[in-house]
């Protein structure tokens, strides 16, 4: 495969790849940490703050139910935000892939 001959270190060192790496890492790990914390608030809250979960919000619907349902909304929201943001990453990655021979080609 032609790609085997690429100088990967050169591509890695390319400012465009470095920018992609920096942006993607910050975004993905930030989102990941947020998702994990938000999720674990549910079992922790249910176990240690049951009185909060029992507070009625409207009708018989209590805070616990609203919070559990919000987990679904948040998970879908994360997927939606990531899908939109990933289009930018895709464009950057595509540009690098297109120029891969130029940046990392070996003579």
């Amino acid at each position: 495969m032609a790609n085997q001959t690429l100088n990967w270190a050169a591509i890695d060192a390319d400012p465009r790849f470095q920018e992609l790496h920096a942006r993607k890492s910050r975004f993905l790990w930030g989102l990941m940490v947020f998702a994990v914390i938000y999720y674990f608030l549910l079992p922790i809250g249910a176990a240690y703050f049951p009185d909060l979960f029992k507070v009625r919000v409207f009708g018989v619907v209590n805070f616990g139910l609203v919070f559990a349902l919000s987990q679904f909304v948040v998970a879908w929201g994360i997927a939606f935000i990531y899908a939109r943001r990933a289009q930018q990453f895709d464009a950057m990655a595509e540009a690098i892939a297109r120029d891969a021979q130029k940046i990392g080609g070996r003579k």
Partner: peptide, 21 residues
Amino acid sequence: GYDGFMYSVGWLVAYITVLLV
């Protein structure tokens, strides 16, 4: 009741890890 519903949440949140990393 509620505990059963709460149990289901983790099974969906698992896919955030799959998606992001």
